[in-house]
Computed example of a mutant assay.
Amino acid sequence: MKPTASFLSVAAVISFLPTTKALVGSSWTVTNVPSTGLTDITFPLTIVEADHISGYYFAQQFGFVNSRDVGYTGLQPRPNQNGKPVLHSVFSSFVAGTTTTDSNCAAGADGGPGVSCSVEWNGVYGRTYDLEVKRNGPSLWVGTAIDTVTGARIHIGSYTLPAGVGGIQSRQAGFVEWYPWNGGEPLNHCAHLPYQKTLFGHPRTTHLGSLGTQGVAYEYGDCVGQVAFRTEKLLIGGVENNCGFKGQTGL
C-alpha cells in the first residue's frame, strides 16, 4: 500500500525521536506557521506522578527552518534536597555552530555538537510548567520554565544559532525517556521501569491565527507492550500518558 502524505509526515517526525532508551512519543503540530518559522512556542508539561529520583526525561523537541537538527526542552525529576522536591529543566540545541555565553549553559549536546542548558529549583509535582522557547533578536533563543500557579519565570538558559537558521517549524514530537539505561540495562529491564504519569498540553504560540495540537501518545523502543503503557486525550486539552511500575527503581 502506498503511504499517505500524513503517514509520511508522522514517519519523518518519528525518525527524529531519540534512538536512546526513550519509551513514549507524542507528535505535535501548529497550524498557520510562516515560511520563516515561529519566533516562540510554549509547551505545557505536568509531572503528575513520578518518584523523586533521577532517571526520567519528559521533553518536547522542536525543529528549525533551514536546519536538519533539533532542540529539546523538558523536565526531569531529582532527589529531594532538605526535604523539598527538586525539578531539573533542560534547554538544548543540537545545531552545529550554536554558541552561548549563558552561565547555565555549556558547549555540546548528548556528546555531539550544540549547546545544553539546565537549571534546578524547588518545583512542585502535579503542577503545570509552561516551557517557553522564544527568540530574542535575530538568532538568540531563550528557554524559560513558567510556574502556572505563581507566575514565576525560571530562566533555563540561552543560546545563539548560526546565521541562516530560521524559526521553529510546524511539527515535531515529545518523548518520555528513562536515560540511565543508555549506559546499560539490567536483566529483564522493562519489568524494572519506575512508574510515571505526565500530561503534555497543547503547544501554544503568540503568532496570530496559529493553533497547536498534541497528538495521542504511542510506545516505541524495545519495551513496547511490556511497561503497562496507557494514554488518553484530555478534555482540558493535551494528552496524558503513563507507564512503568510502582516500587521499581530501574535497577
Rank of each mutant, 00 (worst) to 15 (best):
S139H: 07
S89F: 08
C117E: 05
Y129S: 07
Q81C: 10
G167M: 02
V90A: 13
N122G: 09
A152W: 11
K134P: 05
V149D: 15
N136Y: 07
G143C: 06
G151I: 09
G123P: 01
V142S: 04
W121P: 12
T98C: 03
A106S: 15
S158Q: 14
D102Q: 11
T101L: 06
F91D: 03
N122R: 06
G114N: 02
D110G: 03
C117T: 04
P138G: 06
L131W: 00
T148C: 07
Y159M: 04
T128A: 06
L140M: 12
T128M: 09
Q81Y: 10
N82C: 12
Y125F: 14
P162S: 07
A152G: 13
T144D: 08
L87W: 10
Y129Q: 09
K84Q: 15
N82S: 15
E120C: 06
G108R: 02
G166A: 10
Y129F: 08
D130L: 02
G151S: 14
C117F: 01
N82Q: 15
V165Y: 04
T128R: 08
E132H: 05
R153G: 10
T98H: 01
W121Y: 14
V133H: 02
A106M: 08
H88R: 15
D102S: 10
H155G: 09
A96H: 09
V86K: 10
V115C: 01
A163V: 01
W141G: 04
T101I: 10
C117A: 08
D147N: 13
H155L: 10
G83F: 08
S158H: 07
N122L: 04
G166T: 08
Y129V: 07
L87M: 15
V149K: 14
S93F: 00
Y129K: 04
G114Y: 00
S92C: 12
D130F: 00
